[in-house]
Design a protein around this nucleic acid. Structure first.
Lengths: 238, 238
DNA sequence: GAGTGGTCTAGACCACCTC
DNA sequence: AGGTGGTCTAGACCACTCG
């Protein structure tokens, strides 16, 4: 919370969420915000860019920063979010069950994709997620053991990301994700309540640390009727 | 092509794509780039931020701008992309068929979501997309007639976005998307080659112009075995 | 300690919108 | 014409990495 522009951004988000501005209003001009927060214009602009990236405002040249209506969708999850963060947000009854937690030496394919040494050990972690009494999601993780040495059943049941970021002090930076639909496997049938569904939505992601090393490959398999993905996309310049 | 930082960004992308830098290399330092492009550091930083946003580099404090490996996925389509742009990129045989193009006065639900006047007319446009001989995607669009007055069968078959941006001079800015899986409808069965599939992947999007008005609602229905979505997500600060 | 990126400043000129 | 955001400059100090 020390970066000035992050502080200003958070302050403005709070104001918007508390209803100080409603959809269609314009925020105070950049010039006014400079005076209000006693800072330079470029710093205000960084703060406003954060707001724009997160879908709170849209800047219009000559007019101002227009506040957008949010809540058109249930939860705005574009970006990287851990399962625990999501579950907390939704406020639903959630239970995680660990089915497998072991170090494997095979999985050459994953090892190559992560770009780690040939002899590196990998954690293999299989968890199911039960929401409101139904096992709906199957998460299969492969994690570099040389970077994340100690994973216990307990951390796997709680929040892996919390452990990695807060306890190990590693910074998770970005992920490449792919979403496809696939036929169910025997494993899906065994570990999920499929209710007759013959296909699952599969999200494959490679997760990278701030130093650009990939440390995790995750395959998250969702029962299709309970899957939802929300995206906020800006058109990029040519 | 006049913004200096966009020009620099494009130049650097070209260099990376041509193999001047490979994955793991660092770009010249910001200081060196300042000298090379004869500009200030903040301008260089804007260019590098563009590269980072598009997944070309990852900046590491104290080290430099590290070039990431691309092509781990087939096509990087995060963000807003028109169907025509996508089809061109993939270089596949694509045919668009217009099934319905009319102005409707009902659809109060869509009208409310777009936030347009009660008496506004809406275009209703239904198109199927045939790829490599199979009708795989069904696009249902609702478009504000007061903003986009003339849509012909020909523009609907070619590129709607080209017409809107180049000919009308409107700037498409951002979209909110939702991805879910749903059971097929009679309409899907009639207009698509479903090959026995009982579900489709549905992408619903609201598309906004640069002045923050929503002008289009699209429901894009994909046969699940041919659906793929790629996302590049940065972890946002708290 | 030298080099890197991250933040911040105080100006400047421009393009666009609205009155 | 006056206000808005978009771009750009030329500095400054800081936190971090690495030899």
């Amino acid at each position: 919370m020390k970066n000035k522009y992050v502080v200003i951004s958070n302050e403005l988000v709070k104001n918007i969420q508390q209803g100080a501005f409603s959809a269609g209003d314009t925020l105070p001009s950049e010039h006014e915000l400079c005076a209000q927060f006693e800072t330079s214009r470029e710093t205000i602009r960084k703060a406003l860019n954060l707001l724009a990236q997160n879908g709170y405002i849209q800047k219009v040249r000559g007019k101002g920063s227009v506040v957008l209506e949010r809540n058109k969708f249930k939860f705005p999850v574009s970006g990287l979010t851990s399962f625990k963060e999501l579950a907390d947000q939704m406020g639903q009854e959630v239970k995680t069950r660990v089915h497998e937690l072991a170090i494997v030496k095979q999985a050459a394919h994953v090892r190559r994709q992560l770009g780690c040494p040939e002899d590196a050990k990998l954690w293999k972690l299989i968890r199911s997620r039960e929401i409101d009494g139904e096992r709906i999601i199957l998460d299969k993780d492969y994690i570099r053991e040389d970077l994340i040495p100690d994973i216990t059943k307990e951390t796997a049941e709680q929040s892996l990301y919390y452990y990695i970021e807060e306890e190990l002090g590693l910074e998770i930076s970005f992920a490449k994700k792919e979403i496809v639909v696939e036929d169910v496997t025997d494993e899906d049938r065994e570990l999920l309540d499929l209710k007759g569904h013959q296909q699952v939505v599969v999200i494959r992601s490679y997760v990278y640390l701030a130093d650009t090393t990939a440390f995790q490959f995750t395959e998250s398999r969702h029962r299709p009727d309970k899957f939802q993905f929300v995206d906020f996309a800006r058109r990029t310049k040519a």
